[in-house]
Design a protein around this nucleic acid. Structure first.
Lengths: 226, 226
DNA sequence: CTCGTATGTGAACGCACTGTGAACCGGATC
DNA sequence: GATCCGGTTCACAGTGCGTTCACATACGAG
């Protein structure tokens, strides 16, 4: 995913934190020229422009990026309460705005809605570990970019393990956490699923799941190794 | 100017005051049926729906007014901070939202921007995915240019799925999102509609809808955007 | 090295989930 | 009231896959 353009540079720390937490890649620019110069080949995914502190520079940037052959959108404006009255005359420069200071959840919700509107959809929820990627929305998994064809229980087991890398789980714990608390099956069931997961991960990545003898299984490297 | 629809009735006093001050004519309704019954001949100019206190009633109203031949827009949602996370899956039910309680100036600015936007017709009237095209205005569907003869529920189901490509939905989710929140039918109903959709999509495109065993159904391929 | 325990492996069983055809049922139309 | 249409439900069949078992192999203690 190409990054979002963020203005100004340096970015207010609470904005940087909110963007990082919500998972959007972003890149700050100091002015219009920089915005054009460091633009990715595929263009910016969108823009977040803080107009609260430097309205002139902010609106100039918006105008530049909007008047091009391929207008930059979506554009989210962060404005102070006193600037609300000025927005009326600048409708064409932004797609949505948010009061500044903002609540991180509101900012995230606005970004999601903006991306939905612009047809690009929201950022998928992912569980990642090294070459492994689990897409929680589509129930698909991939390793080294190659899709893994996992069954339901295999996916659930791998999701749980990959969500807690480095940690060892006993078979009983896995049965209760993955299969369900009231599950009364044999512990060997876990072994079989682990085996099939290793097989599907391929010889190269089978060691992502390690056996801890007399204890259980661990995904990824131990926290104490080295 | 035709009035704005406002929900619920009675309207929170600060909302009534803000609307009166900003000069918009408005009319409150107690429920969906009233909204349809007292609708002006030329239709509502837009809607302001307070979802903070009665989310179920509010979203039901939004759904009703959006599912018609001529969807009501623009729609502004007033939500509490705790509801921000729920908005993600209801993108199609509103055009903009505002935190509640709100600042009168922010509400007014959002209304102005919404009307400016809707004056230029930014709402997409088509849902497209690969060879599939859904025309939301005419309720027509086509694949590879050939028209599809879909029934109402088939169309609604396909529209919802195609609006969220790659994402897996459980039967329960589909029942609540497509059929309605208070629907208490059997989950197998979904299966039958999926089957008929696949049949009408034709052998070549039947795989646009995939079964995710033990979970539900997915439309189209996942997006591995990263 | 030997033994006992723990884990890997292949195969088989059987249930639960889904696909499918058809019946049912309520509403609309004439 | 008769008929049609679309949505829902039901019964049945096929099968994917979770579970279990039996046996092979690996590991560690002594």
């Amino acid at each position: 995913m190409e990054p979002l353009l963020v203005y100004p540079d340096p970015v207010p720390p609470e904005l940087a934190q909110a963007l990082d937490l919500s998972g959007y890649p972003w890149k700050a620019v100091v002015d219009e020229r920089t915005a054009v110069r460091v633009e990715p080949d595929d263009g910016w995914t969108g823009a977040i422009v803080v107009a609260a502190n430097d309205p002139d520079g902010a609106f100039a940037l918006c105008r530049t990026l909007r008047k091009r052959d391929l207008p930059l959108e979506p554009m989210l404006l962060l404005v102070s309460g006193g600037q609300l009255g000025d927005l009326e005359l600048r409708d064409e420069l932004f797609d949505d705005f948010c009061l500044y200071p903002f609540q991180p959840l509101e900012l995230e919700a606005r970004l999601k809605h903006l991306f939905w509107r612009s047809g690009r959809g929201t950022r998928p929820e992912l569980v990642e570990y090294g070459p492994l990627v689990l897409n929680l929305e589509t129930y698909q998994a991939a390793i080294d970019g190659a899709p893994l064809d996992l069954t339901y229980m295999e996916y659930e087991l791998l999701k749980f393990l990959a969500s807690h890398p480095g940690r060892v789980f006993t078979r009983e714990t896995l049965l209760s956490r993955v299969w369900g608390y009231e599950y009364y099956g044999g512990a060997r069931t876990v072994d079989v699923h682990i085996r099939r997961l290793r097989a599907k991960l391929g010889e190269q990545h089978a060691n992502l799941i390690q056996t801890v003898r007399s204890v259980g299984y661990r995904f990824g490297q131990s926290r104490w190794s080295i």
